[in-house]
């Protein structure tokens, strides 16, 4: 599966997108194969529910289908940032909606199936801890971690999506990793206690 490598070659993708705009099933299978699970992983990481994440993923693909059909895709060569921008907007909408229903769907306190699933893996403590640490990151830090690792985006594509220089994003990513490392380290808690 493609990861961190950016888009497929532009000519190939432009042909595929043109075919997809006409409803070609093979073209859609190619697009879904390239991006479907990456969109799902990005959404799933934030939403914490398989069914809701798939529903959002479907709405993302319905949106890009309609926009491709109607000529609403004008960012030639930037399909991947465009696609994930739509996905991120859907995630933000969903999170806002969930927060409005506060108490019924607390994203931070509700049982997280991913964490539960991670507990059954060979290194359950590490994975569960990492998942929890991601949830404790600030919104900008979490965003860059999830775009990079869950959506599998390259820094160039992320730069186009977020409108920030690649160097800035590299630094942001590095700082986010350092924060995760600090949260995951058993020593960090002891050090914090010692400073109080």
């Amino acid at each position: 599966m493609q990861s961190h490598d950016g888009e497929t070659s532009a000519p190939d993708l432009s042909v595929t997108l043109a075919q997809a705009a006409r409803g070609d099933e093979g073209a859609w299978r190619d697009i879904v194969r390239l991006y479907g699970r990456r969109v799902f992983a990005l959404v799933r990481s934030r939403i914490g529910n398989d069914e809701a994440a798939e529903e959002i993923a479907q709405s993302v693909f319905a949106t890009i289908a309609i926009k491709l059909r109607d000529g609403g895709y004008s960012e030639i060569g930037r399909f991947e940032p465009w696609l994930f921008r739509i996905a991120m907007n859907r995630v933000r909408d969903s999170v806002r909606h969930a927060k409005r229903r506060a108490g019924l769907l607390s994203l931070s306190s509700s049982p997280d199936p991913v964490v539960e699933q991670a507990r059954s893996t060979p290194d359950p403590a590490e994975r569960a801890g990492l998942r929890a640490a991601i949830q404790n990151l600030s919104e900008p830090d979490r965003e860059i971690i999830e775009l990079r690792h869950h959506a599998g985006m390259g820094f160039r594509q992320m730069s186009e999506l977020l409108g920030e220089p690649v160097g800035t994003l590299l630094a942001r990513h590095h700082r986010a990793l350092q924060k995760l490392k600090a949260m995951l380290s058993p020593l960090s808690g002891e050090e914090s206690e010692g400073t109080l």
């Binding site: 699970r37 799902f40 799933r44 590490e126 994975r127 990492l130 998942r131 990079r148 690792h149 995760l180």
Partner: peptide, 11 residues
């Protein structure tokens, strides 16, 4: 670890 976690979700 992040890549492994993401891969697990994709699969």
């Amino acid at each position: 670890g992040l890549d492994a976690l993401a891969s697990e979700i994709r699969q």
